[in-house]
Amino acid sequence: MPAQDTMTLEIFRYHPETDSEPRFQSFEVPYNEDWVVLDAMNWIKDHVDGSLTHRWSCRMGVCGSCGMMVNGEPKLTCAAFLKDYYPFSIKVEPLVNFAVERDLVVSLDGFMEKLQAVKPYIVRDDVNDTSGGEYMQTPAQLAQYKQYSMCINCMLCYAACPVAGHEDEFLGPAALALGHRYNKDSRDQGQSERLDVMLMGEAIWGCTFVGECTEVCPKHVDPAGAIQQAKAGAAQEYFKRFVAPKGAGA
């Protein structure tokens, strides 16, 4: 039997209890045509170094856990095939623009807070009153936001966004796109509350439409487009409140 082909993975390592600075460690992994980078990472953890730390769950591009920088590109490692890099080595790093907790695991604190800030759920006054039955919606109304509802919170867009890396006030692509998704939902009544947050400081205006969030999105959400549409809505609201300040009228 011929010797098994191998590939080299150069993996970002950082263990806060022993490392003051991150380092790169090379691992030789068996090359299988049908393996993805995540398979190789799991093989290393199972057979070579059990201390390798990375997030993953579904292995099929649904859970959004396994996002990492693969050769400098934000990718779901469950969808990055070894054969697309073979025979060259692959450099795996944690997503940029996030603090690193350990190896490939990044801190989600800031992202979670920003996500919650846009109230990514349907807001209604009559939420406890079910006497009216379901909230009806036509296919045309669904089409207004369906694309933006495909987000899996994988945060690749934050790793691709230079503004998210430089401006703390900026809510970032996924959170803004999700806010826009609910603002566009005909069943929702929370637009004004969301715009309260979006109109603050650089929350939405930090975006200069670099557009790379849309390029890297594995779910074709187009956060860049959603943010520009949300800006138009926010600007409209700004002028409306300028003419009739909130709370002044009926």
Partner: peptide, 29 residues
Amino acid sequence: MSAGGVSGGRGGRPARPSGEAFWWAVFSA
């Protein structure tokens, strides 16, 4: 990424509605 954008503005200031909405509208036109 820190969470400065949600609870407060840059340098600990509370974030407030900025005139950016106005400048962005003019920029677009």
